[in-house]
């Protein structure tokens, strides 16, 4: 089944049916925010949100996870979790980031089983944005508020009902498995969805990003990095909220009488990031760290895996405590 219409009032039935063999997560109101939370039989879904504060990458690349334990003097790898999940309400920017991350966590030489198993076990149902925020700039980076990249199903909020369109075999299979709950969409409904997507796209301000990789390379020694980084406080907000950031480190920890190796998210903005055991740090200034962050996203990943590692979700812009604005950095670099 490729497309289906379901009334919002019927969603609880769909969730119940899916919950039989998968953990379902969806957008749930939590005070003023909407979070991606587990859906119970009575959980009310929220459709009144821009995006989750935290990026969806955390479902596949969590902030921390135990990868091995020391058992009888041997390091024993723990298996990745086998849980099947259905993620509902993922915005297209977050979905677009997932194939980028897969390129990092899986190549000809290495595979990260923890990321890959989780991704394999998940069905991503994106929800197209009808009202992008003024800080969103996905269209400036090859994305769209109705973008289809990275999801298994793209859903459109048509008011009282949702139109679901399968993008992958996994998506088709999910719709087919619950066919009875869906109606065939009318032409009017399909058109309404397309128009909603086009209107959302048109409403967004665009920033110029052509040639950003070459410009970033040329700007390596420019003074702008130290100037902007003068106010950077070296926290991890931009990195931890970014859908495409993926640096991680390992920490060996003693918990009671157990020794475990924990894989943790890391941020190049932290002063400790390149601190070597000798005490030497090749990046001594915050300008060097900021430059690394920008170069990694706009130059190095382009060379390594062929993608700019930014999907224009705007979280770094919104949540930076000192108002460092990536859109301004892109503009400065391009000059």
């Amino acid at each position: 089944m490729e497309k289906g219409i379901i009334g919002k009032s019927e969603l609880a039935k769909l969730v119940e049916a899916m919950a039989a063999d998968a953990t379902c997560l969806g957008p749930v109101k939590d005070g003023q925010d909407t979070v991606l939370a587990e859906l119970g039989p009575d959980t009310e879904l929220s459709f009144d949100y821009a995006n989750f504060r935290l990026p969806v990458k955390r479902l596949f690349f969590p902030q921390s996870e135990v990868t091995c334990v020391l058992r009888d003097g041997q390091l024993v790898a723990l298996p990745p979790p086998d849980e099947k999940t259905v993620l509902f309400g993922v915005r297209p920017c977050d979905a677009q980031a997932l194939p980028y991350l897969t390129k990092i966590f899986s190549d000809e030489k290495y595979e990260d089983p923890y990321y890959l198993k989780r991704r394999e076990n998940a069905v991503i149902v994106s929800l197209a944005c009808h009202t992008p925020c003024s800080t969103c700039f996905c269209t400036s980076l090859g994305g769209s508020p109705a973008g289809r990249a990275g999801c298994d199903i793209l859903a459109f909020d048509l008011g009282h009902e949702l139109l679901l369109e399968a993008e992958t075999e996994k998506g088709k299979a999910l719709l087919a498995a619950h066919e009875a709950l869906f109606a065939a969409p009318t032409d009017a409904q399909v058109t309404a969805a397309a128009e909603q997507g086009a209107a959302a796209e048109a409403s967004m301000a665009k920033i110029e990003t052509d040639g950003i990789t070459e410009k970033a390379d040329q700007a390596f020694d420019a003074p702008l990095w130290e100037e902007i980084a003068a106010r950077c406080v070296a926290c991890g907000v931009c990195t931890y909220l970014c859908p495409t950031c993926h640096c991680f480190g390992f920490a060996d920890e003693q918990v009671g009488n157990r020794t475990q190796r924990v894989k943790c998210q890391d941020a190049c903005m932290f002063p400790l990031f390149t601190l070597e055991a000798s005490g030497h740090n090749p990046r001594t200034t915050q300008g060097q760290r900021l430059r690394q962050r920008i170069m990694h996203k706009f130059s190095y990943t382009v060379k390594n895996v062929g993608e700019i590692f930014c999907v224009g979700c705007g979280r770094c812009v919104l949540y930076c405590p000192v108002n460092i604005d990536l859109r301004e950095i892109i503009e400065e670099v391009r000059k």
Partner: peptide, 18 residues
């Protein structure tokens, strides 16, 4: 909490080198 340390980094009286 996601251990981003924004709280610590913006705090004027948190300045330990490590």
């Amino acid at each position: 909490c996601i251990r981003c340390y924004a709280c610590r980094q913006v705090c004027p009286t948190c300045y330990c080198k490590t």
